[in-house]
């Protein structure tokens, strides 16, 4: 086990310790790995398997169920345009078509320079600002074709770097409090101790 950086390995072990069963940390660890590499590499999958006590195939099989976990490389910026009903009624189909032309790729594709991956997303729960999209899971709403072009230009020039962290970064706030976050030990809770192994 050596793919995850020492800092991420420490984070990963602390995450595992938060749960009565290590397996629960599988998805959170996939997010940590994606934050490090931008996508879920086979090496990271091996590390995660070891950390939660299962096989790499099992981690891959689980991760592939979830839309946000990418088991192939993606661009620096993953642009996810919602086309579900609320955004569709507000012009999302035109926005997606414009994005395809502007970036020269279809959903699932990545620009040759590796900057942008385009995705057609399901409802992102920001319908008050439809049509909306996410870049690396940060929201941008009320988009027009011109607004999209300006957003792409800002991303290229790096002016949005503080708002849009690199792909895979979800929660930048680390847990600092809590009964079980101290030294990475198991939860010191009676209820947690009473849970039978393999209870489900």
């Amino acid at each position: 086990m050596a793919h995850l950086s020492p800092d991420n390995l420490e984070r990963a072990r602390a995450l595992v310790a938060l749960y009565p069963h290590p397996r629960s940390a599988l998805v959170p660890l996939c997010h940590v790995a994606q934050e490090q590499d931008g996508w879920l590499t086979p090496e990271a999958i091996s590390d995660i398997a070891e950390l939660v006590g299962t096989t790499p195939a099992d981690v891959l099989g689980t991760a592939s169920f979830y839309d946000m976990l990418h088991t192939e490389p993606v661009g620096t910026y993953v642009v996810s345009i919602c086309t579900n009903i609320a955004c569709m009624l507000r012009g999302a189909d035109d926005l997606l078509r414009h994005a395809e032309e502007h970036l020269g790729i279809h959903p699932g594709g990545t620009t040759p320079d590796g900057m942008f991956t385009l995705e057609e997303a399901e409802c992102l729960a920001d319908c008050g600002r439809a049509p909306c999209l996410q870049v690396n899971h940060r929201f941008f709403g009320n988009l027009t074709a011109e607004g999209f072009d300006a957003l792409v230009a800002d991303l290229r020039s790096g002016t949005l770097d503080s708002e849009v962290p690199h792909h895979g970064t979800l929660c930048r706030i680390r847990r600092t409090g809590g009964l079980s976050s101290g030294k990475g030990g198991p939860p010191a809770m009676a209820a947690a101790e009473s849970v039978p192994e393999g209870g489900s």
Partner: peptide, 21 residues
């Protein structure tokens, strides 16, 4: 927390950190 709600997740974690304190 739904994975796509990154800011929501950050806000809840920050609130929890403060609430523990």
């Amino acid at each position: 927390v739904r994975g796509e709600l990154a800011l929501g997740m950050e806000r809840v974690q920050a609130a929890l950190n403060d609430a523990y304190e």
